[in-house]
């Protein structure tokens, strides 16, 4: 099984971080994987995206141009990538920031008010992790296991105090 995930949003929304978390989870689970960020000035406040591929086979191109799973954290990202999702794929929409509905009818859509939920738990920067929790629940290629181990890898040593709140954000998304 191969799952191609595209995470897109504004710079600062933790798009790359969420991707890294999924990548580390894949590493722990012994999967083949790749993580590829967009880079350059666009990282500074513009749109940022990252391609994550998790697979039982060796990964070919690390560039996700036709995602199985699209995580859209803002409207420009949904506008840009909605049509690229493979038929039968999944789109996760941050419904706090994106008011419109997905036009496609051949994909599964999940509207998650992740920005609102993150704000409610006093962690406004963790909408990405709320969303990732929901992805883990719904997406067959991404298990709900090894959360703590992956978090420990992806949260830098000097920010280990943030482990718990990240864990909570993931749980919040997973519980939806």
């Amino acid at each position: 099984m191969t799952t191609q995930i595209l995470i897109a949003g504004f710079g600062g929304q933790g798009v790359l971080f969420a991707g890294k978390f999924l990548a580390y989870k894949g590493l722990i689970e012994g999967k083949n994987l790749s993580w590829l960020p967009s880079y350059g000035p666009e990282m500074r406040g513009g749109t940022a995206n990252c391609s994550v591929i998790i697979s039982d086979e060796p990964v070919g191109s690390p560039i996700v141009s036709e995602p199985d799973v699209l995580i859209a954290m803002n409207l420009p990202s949904l506008d840009k990538y909605e049509d690229a999702v493979v038929p039968g794929g999944m789109i996760f929409v941050d419904s706090t920031l994106i008011e419109r509905k997905v036009k496609r009818t051949d994909v599964k859509v999940f509207y998650v008010p992740s920005t609102k939920l993150a704000a409610e738990m006093n962690a406004p920067t963790l909408a990405n992790m709320v969303m990732t929790g929901k992805v883990m629940k719904e997406c067959p290629g991404v298990s709900g296991e090894n959360i703590e181990a992956a978090l420990k890898k992806v949260v830098s040593a000097r920010h280990q105090d943030l482990l718990e709140i990240n864990f909570k954000a993931l749980e919040t998304g997973y519980a939806l």
Partner: peptide
């Protein structure tokens, strides 16, 4: 190239 430099893999 830029992708090889920026991408992460095991």
């Amino acid at each position: 190239d830029g992708t090889m430099g920026q991408m992460m893999e095991p």
